[in-house]
Design a protein around this nucleic acid. Structure first.
Lengths: 206, 206
DNA sequence: CCTCCAATCTGACCAATGGTCAGATTACTG
DNA sequence: CAGTAATCTGACCATTGGTCAGATTGGAGG
């Protein structure tokens, strides 16, 4: 377990914050965001459940802090996928790669991903979380702007909505409807994902 | 309130089932699926919270029954949107209309819609729910088959994934990220939705 | 009309949770 | 070394979902 319980009788100094976030990560990994319990996280950090209050306020604050880290990692995944491309790649390929990074993050971290869109568990107006969400939109906006530089605002909105919706919808459906026809096996899901990205990129270039 | 509390001392006969489902509908409407409480629903039906057990088993059973009704209504919304078309409408228009029905249902019943994809609150293997989910996929499959009758299986899978993902992703993002840039106002959201449907239908026809 | 039985419902109990608060403990500052 | 602010504890509370014995109800059969 990655969580460091504190030594008996000692304070965590500034480290309780990190220890609690790591505990959330563990629980989310093991049982999903719904299963996160203030008391269980505190237990794993070796601390009473009230100890979280000074650091995060309440459960929602803790989950929001964790979601903020997820948003940053999601952004990093998209950037990494684009960076993995040869420098000669064209705009359409870059847009597809951005989506590939999004899908890869959702696949590798299903619980963390699902939490990002659980408005009931989060505080959508917490400044750091807000900033992380806006930052996570940047790679898509960037790739799209490079694809269709002169498109009118309305067409641009529609394409952004299409690309984001299609990729996000794919991740959500795969995460929430396991066993659906379109992604029975992992291999099939990967194939469908690639074809989907190609269709989206083509439609946005179109 | 649409819920009929039972008369004091009398049994609900077979009507408790319906009364509880109506109570769920109320709570979901007022505060979303996460806020549903067995005890609150029982309170609204004028019954102790244990009274639900013989009818639904547990909370998950109650929510699954409610979600089953939602799935059926979602299917009806898609069919209605297609039926509202002039009989001369072509296959591409019919596919877009199917998506329009999906979006309309999600918009009109955000809580009910979100519940459908909350695997943690539902029993995905409950037979009636399974059947309703499969039935809800039919209108999309039907419209897609009419659009591209001879397409190879792989291309068909990709197009189904695109259409479903894009429409579902749009609904999900709008429901879970209120206040995002792409759907600030209702009018803007409607415009984006129509453009999105057109792009999807075109990509699936192409 | 009466009896009996199965379905239905109640009320109490339990463990668990999130939030709050007074106060103890710790770590740092001057 | 003294004092102060941050950190943490332990207890308490209301609420929840699940379980169970037993009361109540409605209808089936005599």
């Amino acid at each position: 377990m990655s969580v460091t319980p504190k030594a008996a009788g000692r304070h965590h100094h500034g480290a309780l914050r990190r220890a609690l976030l790591d505990a959330v990560a563990e629980v989310v990994l093991e049982a999903g965001p719904e299963a996160v319990t203030l008391r269980e996280c505190a237990r794993r950090a070796g601390v009473s459940h009230s100890a979280a209050t000074p650091h995060f306020g309440d459960k929602r604050g803790l989950l929001t802090a964790f979601a903020t880290e997820g948003s940053e990692r999601l952004r990093a995944a998209m950037q990494a996928a684009v960076a993995a491309l040869p420098p000669t790649a064209d705009a359409q390929t870059r847009l597809a790669a951005t989506g590939r990074g999004y899908i890869a993050f959702a696949r590798a971290n299903p619980g963390h991903f699902r939490l990002l869109f659980r408005a009931d568990l989060l505080d959508p107006d917490e400044p750091a979380f807000r900033a992380a969400k806006e930052a996570a939109f940047v790679p898509l906006a960037h790739a799209m702007a490079a694809l269709a530089p002169g498109a009118p605002a309305r067409a641009m909105r529609a394409r952004l909505a299409l690309a984001w919706s299609a990729v996000h919808g794919f991740c959500t459906l795969r995460a929430e409807l396991p066993g659906a026809i379109l992604w029975q096996s992992d291999a099939l899901a990967e194939e469908v994902a690639e074809d989907l990205l190609a269709l989206v990129a083509e439609a946005c270039a179109g």
